[in-house]
Design a protein around this nucleic acid. Structure first.
Ligand code: FES
Ligand code: FES
Lengths: 134, 134
DNA sequence: TTAATTCGGATAACAATAGTCCGATTTTTA
DNA sequence: TAAAAATCGGACTATTGTTATCCGAATTAA
């Protein structure tokens, strides 16, 4: 398993949709219907993206969301972080793992870290804009 | 989430251990104790690696495992595959997903595939040998 | 023949993901 | 000013996937 969650997948596709319709405020309902994504789940996802500055919400009737920034400057890595997930390939490389019961036996931290950094590079260099230019 | 499973993590570390002790047959028990990995779970993992040609088993007392190939030629991608998992970042890119109910709405296949290929390149170019030269 | 090991199938415990429900709040507009 | 359509937020449920364990059988060296 090395899979992005549905939250991230839906989030990216929704941002892509907004990028392709920039200028107008897009509702969760519209995205949900156009992309066939479960409405309630998508709503939650967009709320988190809003809370963390990736998109801007407008409440009330006629409300919805718009991108907070240029699609070129919003990376997949930022989206993952904004959705309160991480892209750490082994627990080993996590910050809050003082309680790993294998830490004194760990022989993979360094090599795994090298691989991690390469993956991070990819995630940091893939932007929403690249999803728009289909 | 973009995490490797414990099966893969343990598998890689076990292979690394074998690479560092090449020449001798290593039992699951020894690896389990040396690396503090749950014995039964590790056993299963090694059995799968054996079945799929990454290591060679020797049964009976004094039995255990040795690497089937040069650590330099065993990649992380192969290990993942041998452990019957995959490293597909979104379902979209999977072979057996005729039943994705978003396929007619899918706008992420191409860009996701580009990212996938870059990740595949990393996994195909990281070998067990690199884990040994700590 | 015994002991230490792999083998293989089933199953259980746990955790994470995915999805839903519902009431409250906001804001436009008729 | 009331209604409608949207976001907000918390709790909750369902489902799936991961991790771990159990146990009996087969294998083989001593
Ligand atoms: S620190 Fe726990 S396995 Fe590396
Ligand atoms: S094919 Fe199902 S989301 Fe791309």
């Amino acid at each position: 398993m090395l899979k992005l969650s549905k939250k991230i997948e839906y989030g990216i596709q929704a941002l892509q949709y907004m990028a392709n319709n920039s200028g107008s405020v897009i509702s969760a309902k519209e995205i949900s219907e156009q992309l066939n994504i479960p409405y309630e789940f998508l709503s939650k996802t967009l709320q988190i993206l809003n809370k963390n500055g990736i998109i801007i919400s407008q409440q009330g009737i006629k409300g919805g969301y718009i991108l907070a920034r240029d699609p070129k400057s919003t990376t997949v890595a930022e989206i993952i972080k904004a959705l309160e997930e991480n892209a750490i390939i082994v627990d080993c490389l996590s910050n809050d793992q003082e309680n790993c019961d294998r830490i004194n036996f760990c022989t993979i931290k360094n090599p795994m870290n090298k691989l991690q950094e390469k993956i991070n590079f990819l995630l940091n260099n893939t932007t929403i804009a690249e999803f728009s230019e289909v």
